[in-house]
Simulated assay, not measured.
Amino acid sequence: MGRITETVKVLLIVNILFFVGSQFLGEYAYQLFALWFPKNDNFYFWQLITHMFMHGGLTHIFFNMFALYIFGSLLEQSIGQPRFLFLYFSAGLGAAGLQILFSYFTFNSAYQAYLDAGFNPNEIQGFLNEVVASGRYNFYNNVPQDATEALINSYVTPMVGASGAVFGVMAAIALIYPNLPLYLMFIPIPIKAKYFIGGYFLINVYSAITGANILGPSNTAYWAHIGGAIIGFLMMWYWKKNQFNQNRWY
C-alpha cells in the first residue's frame, strides 16, 4: 500500500468531521445535509454535495472510508489531483442522479395508484405530510400495500454516504489496474481487481433489480452505487483512451 495522498487525507478528515458533527446535531444535521427526495420540503440543492459526507452509522462510514483509503491514493497518484477530484465528485453526483431517477419512478408509479383509487393530489400530499409529522400511516383497502410503502419510502427516506463516489473510484481502479491483486478480509487469497470490483458491481445490480439484499442493509441505495460506478468507469475509459501517457494522466 502506497503513501496516502493529501487529497484523500482531506476527504477522510471532512467525512469524519461531518460524521462527528451529525452525532451532536442529530436529526437536524440529516435534515439539512442528507439528500432528500426533491418533492420533499427538506430538499435543498446543496444536498447534492453534502450527502456525500454524511453517513448513517459507524459501519457505514468505516467501510466507505476504508475503501477510499485503499483505492483513492492509488488513483490520485495515477491521474493527478484535479482529475481525481473531478471523477470523485462526478461519480457522487451520478450516484445521486440515478438514485433520484429511480425514486421518481417508484414515487410516480405509487402516486398514480393513489390517483386511480380516487385520491386527489391535495389528499395525497396531506397523507404524506401526516407521515412526515407523525411517522405513522394507514393502509387503504383500495390501494395496494406495496404502492403505499413505495410512495412513503421514496418521499421520506434521505440518501447519505460517500458510496457512490467511492464506487466511481473503484471502477476507475478496475479499469486501469485490472490485474491488481486484492484480498478479502480474513481470506488470504488474492483476487484480481477486475473480478473483485466487477463482481461487487454485479451484486449491486442484482440487488437493485430484484430487491434482494445480499450485501448491506435493506435500505442500501443500490442504484446510487451503480450510478457512481458507471460514471467512474466511463470517465476513466475516456481519459485512458484519449489522453494516455505511460507515466500519468494530467
Rank of each mutant, 00 (worst) to 15 (best):
Y155M: 08
S90A: 15
V8S: 01
F53K: 05
V14A: 03
Q145R: 15
N247F: 15
V8T: 04
F186A: 14
T7E: 01
G232H: 09
F53Q: 04
Y206V: 15
V10F: 08
Q31L: 12
W249Y: 14
V8C: 05
Y30M: 12
G168K: 00
A221L: 04
S163F: 00
G97N: 06
G135W: 04
I226G: 03
K194A: 03
V160N: 06
N213V: 10
A110E: 03
P178N: 06
Y88L: 03
I70M: 13
W223S: 15
Q246I: 12
A172N: 02
I124P: 01
W249D: 03
K192S: 14
S207I: 08
S73R: 00
I70S: 12
Y104S: 05
M235F: 15
A34N: 07
G80P: 02
Y155Q: 08
A208C: 13
N64K: 06
L11Q: 07
S134R: 09
D116Y: 11
W237D: 09
P144V: 04
P158C: 14
N247P: 10
F105P: 02
V143K: 07
A67M: 13
Y88G: 00
G227D: 05
P82C: 05
V131R: 09
L128D: 06
W239V: 06
G216Y: 11
N108Y: 15
I187R: 09
L128Y: 09
G92E: 00
M159Q: 12
H60E: 09
D41M: 06
I230C: 13
V14F: 01
P38E: 06
E27P: 05
G228W: 00
I191M: 09
I124Y: 03
G92C: 00
H225P: 04
L180Q: 09
G56K: 11
H55C: 07
Q31F: 13
I100N: 04
I49R: 06
L93F: 10
N138D: 13
F53M: 08
L32Y: 10
L48S: 07
I124A: 01
I203F: 09
F43P: 04
P82D: 04
F167Y: 13
N120I: 14
Y88A: 00
M54H: 07
L35H: 05
A172E: 02
I4W: 10
V205D: 11
I203L: 15
Y200G: 12
R248K: 15
S163A: 11
P82E: 06
A34H: 04
G232K: 06
A229P: 02
A171K: 06
A212K: 15
I49E: 02
F244A: 14
L234N: 01
N42C: 11
G198M: 07
G118K: 02
F89Q: 00
I152F: 06
S163R: 01
R136S: 14
F127M: 10
R3M: 13
T148W: 11
G92R: 00
E130G: 10
A221W: 00
N122Y: 09
F244Q: 13
G232W: 07
F186P: 02
F33V: 02
W36N: 10
V10E: 08
V8Q: 01
P188E: 11
L101F: 15
N153C: 08
F86H: 06
F37T: 10
K192M: 13
V143Y: 11
S134W: 07
L98K: 09
W237P: 03
P158N: 14
S22R: 09
G118D: 05
